[in-house]
Design a binder for these strands. Structure first.
Lengths: 339, 339
DNA sequence: TATTTTACTGAGAGCGCTCTCAAAATATTG
DNA sequence: CAATATTTTGAGAGCGCTCTCAGTAAAATA
């Protein structure tokens, strides 16, 4: 079955190519009667414009890319954060009639080569960069090449780029404050990878809570994890000999891992060690005890990232748009505040 | 910064457009010296062919789509299966120089409209369909429109389409056999959504193990879950009054949920109820006790799906290619066989 | 050396659309 | 009703590639 072209639709409808193009693209200045007639033909034939031709002629592809750079310690892609983020992104793309492409890489060389190809081939109109390291090497080239992009998760402070993020600092602050308020004295922190803006921010918030109250923090109680369950468990085992009575883990996966490590050492959560996580993913309310955590709106993050990106694409303006989404403390069993 | 074109590269290298095209596409019959010279210019300038133009002229986009239809009960996308599958798919796409687009939908109407657009706009060269229901409505239109596609997870039996799948039947069989061998008498099954080929197959394998040994199965011990942790827990709570001494849950998430339900009812795993899962995701070895499960090679599934699809695209032949990947029983603590 | 093969290379015709520009049709005004 | 303004339409020139076909250069053969 041969694919229909604009030309053929035009012939059938008895108008010119340009006119069909106008109705397809919803341009003004068409007689209603003509528009109707053409639309009928389109509907009847199931005509769908050829994307390649369109994008060649208009220099716009209506495709955006989701780019997940390699980050230090771990393969984060398995974390539920990504499916959720992608759900949000995908939904918004559907609504705004954009197509989403996915770029995940496994080593630096591949990453660099493909990145240049993506950028220079005109495939995409813009890029969402996620989970990037603080000193992401791609940002400068994006800016220089003038490719629209938005970052998800904190952007480098000086970078002057658009981003959307959750209130990670406030979240860390809320978690720590809650633990302090509840009366714990030796509060540990398993921070997410610090090379990540997210990790840095959650830890900063955590520390702020102590600073504000002029409480000294025991530096040895602060360790760096890698976002994973296993990493959380491992770090917790390391922490346990130091006798913490509470721990804030910077992601639910790590919090669950920490809980596991605590319980398998014969201690109880929250009686012996209280636990607070970050994310509020489904697993948080499926654990036992249920996890107290900081809820962040991940899907919304994704959809706002798309809206922001498309706004940048449409306006062509490169003044940064930043949005920071609120988080909230969800108190459940693991923090001991409910006893 | 203006983007370079073939024409300009040609001018710089002092050859014709066609010649540059030849070196870019690695065509034979070019003098080595000329090829070198052109390649140098390309490298030096960082020239990257325009994809839209290419795909318009060649009628090939080098883009494939991953399409996740809506399926009955739940939003499966959060299951770790998807990130893993996408990892495998993405890796293979990178290797074979294809770009991956993602289509996730949230309601039937949207799904149908977008599907037609995807199919008819020439955006993609082929489609990977995953987690489709047995009676997927898209398959017939794909066949009729002659769009290359491969299904991940079992295809409808009569459909005569290409698919790649794990040995779900064998997996169910192995799980049940192991439980029978270990001596359990009241073995329950929380099957994954049956509307899914996967669910049907795993259950069938489970039943086969009993049939083969001419053991009667108690039908009331067989229930249908929805792949999720919460669903597994819920179904297990429903099962508990019937006093099963073992349960095979058709996914790790459900198995973990079941374990949770068992433990919170005051029973022990595996002493009171043994548990076997399916998948062998990281969470399986992070639970307590660790989960005995059927390991399936998800990433490999993804990469083979891509290879198969591209083979179909390249050869244009529509004879179905099916590959079924082996699974294996991973014995850990939750099945009680290690005692 | 003349002639036939074979290996390279370039000219040029599209691919299916968008968009500008000018012509045609219609509406508005004095 | 003529003159002018406005809306609607079509012609046609690209967008940057691929690919066929014919032509030229080099190699092989007689």
């Amino acid at each position: 079955m041969k694919r229909l072209t604009l030309e053929e639709i035009a012939k059938i409808a008895g108008v010119s190519r340009a006119t069909v193009s106008r109705v397809v693209n919803d341009h003004p200045n068409i007689r209603l009667e003509v528009r109707q007639r053409v639309q009928d033909v389109i509907d009847k034939t199931g005509y769908e414009p050829n994307r390649a031709a369109r994008s060649l002629a208009s220099n716009r592809s209506n495709i955006i890319g989701l780019f997940k750079p390699l980050v230090g310690l771990s393969d984060l892609f398995i974390d539920p954060y990504y499916p959720k983020l992608m759900n949000g992104i995908s939904r918004e793309c559907n609504d705004l009639d954009y197509v989403l492409t996915l770029f995940i890489f496994e080593n630096r060389k591949e990453e660099k080569a493909k990145f240049n190809r993506i950028i220079n081939s005109g495939l995409i109109d813009g890029l969402i960069i996620t989970a990037s390291a603080i000193d992401d090497p791609f940002v400068p080239v994006l800016k220089q090449r003038n490719i629209p992009f938005v970052m998800v998760g904190r952007a480098p402070q000086d970078a002057n780029v658009s981003f959307v993020d959750a209130e990670n600092i406030a979240g860390g602050y809320m978690a720590a404050s809650h633990l302090i308020r509840t009366g714990y004295k030796r509060i540990a922190c398993i921070a997410p990878e610090l090379s990540t803006g997210v990790g840095e921010d959650r830890l900063k918030g955590f520390l702020n809570a102590f600073k504000e109250r002029q409480i000294e923090v025991d530096k040895s109680l602060i360790v760096e994890g890698d976002f994973t369950f296993a990493g959380g468990a491992k770090m917790m085992r390391q922490l346990l000999p130091l006798k913490p009575d509470a721990v804030f883990a910077g992601s639910d996966a790590m919090a669950l891992g920490a809980m596991q490590a605590i319980q398998e050492s014969g201690l109880r959560v929250p009686e012996d060690v209280a636990v607070v996580g970050f994310d509020d993913f489904p697993s948080a309310s499926n654990s036992s005890p249920m996890l107290t955590t900081i809820r962040q709106p991940v899907e919304q993050t994704g959809s706002i990232a798309v809206r922001t990106l498309i706004d940048i694409i449409d306006t062509g303006s490169s003044i940064p748009r930043n949005t920071i989404l609120p988080v909230e403390l969800v108190i459940r069993g693991s923090c001991g505040a409910l006893r």
